[in-house]
């Protein structure tokens, strides 16, 4: 410590000057403005989409549209609403996520907790990455080829002469699960990997088996992660069009198949909000843009609601779960 020079600044004296942009180099200034601009532009684009869809959607959205069935009238005033597509979206999302979640969670548990031989574990991970990277239209075409196989005829219906139709809520849902699966898998894997080793050892140390540890300690701990992944996956399913158009049969209404109540809907065909929007857009056959806008707005609300759910789960997980606690703090 030097005693002589550099006395403490007298009170009231000017504080050290804050760095201002005027001192920056030009390159820094430009980069700074560009970064700000990019952020603002994205906000503006999001607001624009939401705003435009809200204006156009609300302009045409009548409550009656939400609970009337679509019909094939040429006159738009008689062509009904989109109750069936709403039911179709919900149904397909539930089927897809119900298939995807257990498989994805089981795969994540195997990869993280067992993962032997490690080569096989890596293969599973890259396999899931491949699925995640496959365009949905490719999955749809593959699904059609798969489910038209005679052995899988029970999932849709078989025409006279033995041709399998291959299109139904079950087949579309099965393919949709592949879209959601990587999301649930990734989130669960991250969650499991973030649990420190000593938590598992604490359970083993109490004389618990590996299975008991997974069921009673690890799975409850990663529940927020699974929920987040599932909500993300549901958003993907609800927003997908290609699989619906190709694998759901593209009937506007729910068409039942077979006589077993409940199963007849699953084996039948229908539409979702995405296919409804597509069909009613100028590109589709219906050419009823008003209804397309109204349905698109409903779809947007649905997906935004799902995203908010994700946020909510993540934040609630942070409060009661592991983040920010000793358990999540690592070793």
């Amino acid at each position: 410590m030097a005693v002589t020079a550099s006395p403490r600044p007298a009170p009231g004296k000017q504080r050290p000057k804050r760095e201002s942009m005027a001192d920056w180099r030009w390159g820094d200034r430009i980069a700074y403005v560009l970064c700000w601009g990019a952020g603002l532009a994205l906000c503006a684009i999001a607001a624009l989409i939401m705003g435009y869809m809200a204006v156009r959607g609300l302009q045409y959205l009548k409550p009656s549209l939400l609970w009337s069935h679509p019909s094939g009238e040429v006159d738009q005033s008689d062509s009904g609403g989109f109750l069936d597509p709403i039911i179709g979206t919900i149904l397909l999302t539930i089927i897809g996520i119900a298939i995807a979640t257990p498989i994805a969670v089981a795969a994540a548990i195997w990869v993280v907790e067992y993962g032997r031989p490690s080569g096989l574990a890596r293969m599973v991970e890259s396999g899931i990455e491949v699925v995640a990277g496959t365009p949905d239209i490719v999955l749809a075409i593959f699904g059609l080829a798969l489910f038209q196989h005679g052995l899988l005829g029970w999932m849709s219906f078989t025409a006279e002469g033995g041709a399998v139709f291959g299109r139904s809520f079950l087949t579309a849902g099965a393919m949709m699960s592949l879209i959601a699966l990587p999301m649930v898998f990734g989130a669960t894997r991250e969650g499991l990997q973030s649990i420190p080793a000593h938590v598992r050892e604490a359970s083993y140390g109490l004389g618990k088996t590996k299975i008991a540890t997974i069921r009673r300690v690890l799975l409850p701990a990663v529940r927020p992660n699974v929920s987040t992944g599932a909500a993300l996956g549901m958003g993907r399913i609800a927003g997908d069009t290609a699989i619906v158009v190709i694998l759901l049969g593209a009937t506007l209404r729910l068409e039942k198949e077979g006589g077993v109540p409940g199963l007849d809907v699953l084996k039948g065909t229908g539409s979702t909000l995405t296919s409804y929007v597509y069909n009613n857009s100028p590109a589709g056959e219906g050419n009823a843009p008003e209804k397309a806008y109204a349905a698109a707005f409903v779809l947007l609300l649905l997906v935004v609601a799902l995203n908010f759910t994700v946020d909510l789960i993540a934040r609630r997980g942070a409060k009661t779960g592991l983040e920010g606690t000793r358990l999540g703090a690592g070793r």
Partner: peptide, 14 residues
Amino acid sequence: RRVAMVFQQPNPFP
């Protein structure tokens, strides 16, 4: 169960 253990980090289960 007969030889129990307490660890360095407090690690209650969630």
